[in-house]
Design a protein around this nucleic acid. Structure first.
Length: 304
DNA sequence: AAAGCGGCCAACCGCAAGCAC
DNA sequence: TGTGCTTGCGGTTGGCCGCTT
């Protein structure tokens, strides 16, 4: 944030335009400014931001007013932490669209592009930094899809077991069969004949109802039990020890442990996920196994 | 108790697209 | 068609605050 510095005194050398610009306020908004802006928009509506700023008596740029309104003052803005469902949606949509924050935000009612962008930078990119890989790299995408998202799904399931236990499994399976998943892991996770699924298909965008996206919105109904039917093909394991490994074993899922540290790296190694990383080393082995992917903050959100 | 550190997030910036004239 | 203005978007900054040492 730029400091709310008093305007530089250019009285003796400035043009009228410069004088006008020098009077513009920057930095944090005051309650009075917020009130002015809110009341003006309530009466006259949004748009024409430069004119709006002047007519409302605000010494701000139109851009500043627009940003303040859209990111903070708008009545339907949803405050507070992102739910696991919302996080899941963000991860999925980002994997599709990349840094198209406004587009992603359109599918999260009440959430702003700024908020989603901040979430991505502070939470998601942090994980990438800790793993010493590029957050926009394919490998990070793979890791998110195969190790982070299943955890979120699991959390969603636990939060509302009656409504989503089976459907979330199908969501997880869908995620794991995306083309971006490494072939080894795709084999690990693949279950035959998944239903076609779009996480957006059933999503409500009713702004008036600011409740978060439900599990049902995200996940279609499906009754396949992933741990029952999912196996790592023996030809990929390289060892009979893992010749009959289920997905649960692959993730080493512990019902009391939602963090990425719960992942069985031995199993991941067994399916060849570490391979082909000569320049960056055994990134998953050396970094993720070192108690990284601490997603505790995310898991705590449900209790808030 | 104080200093250091890191995370969060509001608000800024530059750029580009859209539009009116 | 060119120009200028407005709007929207994505990237970046830096103050605040809580936690750790």
């Amino acid at each position: 944030m730029r400091a709310a510095m008093p305007p530089i005194n250019t009285k003796n050398m400035s043009t009228p335009l410069e004088e006008e610009e020098s009077e513009l306020r920057r930095g944090p908004w005051t309650l009075e400014e917020d009130t002015l802006l809110t009341h003006y928009i309530a009466r006259h509506g949004e748009g024409r931001w430069n004119m709006l700023a002047k007519c409302a008596g605000l010494k701000r740029t139109g851009k500043s007013c627009r940003l303040r309104w859209l990111n903070y003052l708008k009545p339907d803005i949803k405050r507070g932490n992102l739910t696991p469902q919302e996080q899941l949606l963000i991860l999925e949509l980002h994997s599709k669209w990349g840094n198209r924050w406004s587009k992603i935000a359109q599918h999260l009612p009440g959430r702003t592009d700024n908020e989603i962008k901040n979430y991505w930078r502070t939470r998601v990119q942090k994980q990438a930094r800790q793993l010493n890989i590029e957050s926009n790299s394919q490998r990070f995408l793979d890791a998110v899809r195969c190790f982070w998202m299943p955890r979120l799904v699991q959390k969603v399931e636990q939060a509302s077991p009656s409504s989503s236990s089976s459907s979330s499994s199908s969501y997880l399976k869908e995620m794991c069969t995306q083309s971006t998943v490494p072939s080894q892991l795709s084999s690990c996770c693949t279950v035959p004949s998944f239903p076609t699924f779009s996480p957006l298909a059933n999503k409500t965008t009713d702004i008036s109802n600011s409740s978060s996206v439900t599990t049902q919105n995200i996940c279609p109904t499906d009754s396949i039990n992933i741990s029952d039917q999912t196996e790592i093909p023996q030809h990929l394991t390289g060892s009979n020890v893992y010749g009959h490994t289920t997905l649960d074993q692959c993730y080493n899922i512990d019902s009391n442990d939602y963090g990425m540290e719960g992942i069985s790296f031995a199993s991941m190694s067994a399916v060849g996920f570490y391979e082909g990383t000569s320049s960056e080393g055994n990134w998953m082995c050396t970094e993720m196994s070192d108690n990284l992917w601490n997603m505790d903050d995310i898991w705590q959100l449900r209790s808030m």
